[in-house]
């Protein structure tokens, strides 16, 4: 080892000692990792939960056969949910509303905000397709009455109608409403509402656990230097900074 590296290492050690941080070597840490017991069924469950919540219905079906893991929701309901989501993503909002009501009319009845956002999306699609008259009529008849009940809705409505004021919408301040991300946002809102109505969590557990990993590592950083995993997609342990 060159003298340079020896000095660097010594400095790092001194620093670690000064902040009274415990240093856990790779070897010690690997031993701790090996002592952790994780059940295969639990991992399978985690994967199944992801497939089901994210709506990978065929994959969930296959996974049930290949791993014997039971899904925590009736797989048939996923197909319906995904059809609604897809309809919104493709801009067929009317179709989506109908499908949600077929699934469970209570979802929209008890969710005025979601219903408003769907109607707003419908208005956006009309404007996108250049149906100005239809859009105006729809805004006045369906959306304005709701805006009167709720200040936030009113502001949203005004923002949306503003789209009509611009000839070149791609360059206007509210142009983001026409972006694909607006559809995705509305679609995931419907998706979450349907899941909640089926008494299922609206988000899969896996992303939460990954966030928790990052958080737990940050927490431990305050007390110790230890091998971290910085790249989630390779899960490679990186040596502590000492």
């Amino acid at each position: 080892m060159s003298l340079f590296w020896i000095v660097i290492r010594q400095l790092a050690e001194i620093e670690a000692m000064a902040t009274s941080k415990k240093v856990i070597t790779r070897e010690e840490w690997e031993k701790k990792l090996n002592d952790v017991k994780i059940r295969k069924e639990d991992m399978n469950k985690l994967v199944m939960n992801f497939l089901v919540t994210e709506g990978y219905v065929e994959a969930a079906e296959k996974f049930r056969m290949e791993s014997g893991t039971e899904p925590d929701i009736d797989l048939a309901t996923i197909t319906d949910r995904m059809a609604v989501k897809k309809a919104v993503q493709c801009g067929n909002v009317e179709d989506a509303i109908e499908k949600v009501n077929d699934l469970n009319p209570e979802i929209l009845d008890t969710n005025p905000q979601l219903f408003f956002h769907l109607q707003q999306q419908r208005l956006i699609e009309l404007i996108r397709n250049g149906k100005v008259e239809e859009a105006l009529e729809f805004a006045q008849e369906e959306l304005a009455p709701r805006g009167e009940e709720n200040q936030t809705f009113l502001e949203e409505l005004e923002r949306t109608v503003a789209l009509l004021a611009f000839e070149d919408v791609s360059n206007c301040p509210v142009g983001d409403l026409l972006d694909i991300s607006q559809r995705l946002k509305t679609a995931s809102e419907v998706n979450a509402a349907i899941l909640t109505s089926q008494s299922h969590e609206k988000d899969p557990k896996l992303p939460s656990l990954l966030k928790m990993l990052i958080w737990a590592q940050n927490q431990l950083d305050e007390k110790a230097a230890y091998p971290r995993i910085n790249n989630l997609s390779t899960a490679a342990l990186e040596d502590p900074a000492v």
Partner: peptide
């Protein structure tokens, strides 16, 4: 699997912090 390695790391971090 990568997933398992991440879960192990998560649990080890939690355990270590708790034991400290």
């Amino acid at each position: 699997s990568y997933l398992e390695r991440l879960l192990r790391q998560l649990i080890a971090c939690c355990l270590e912090r708790r034991s400290m």
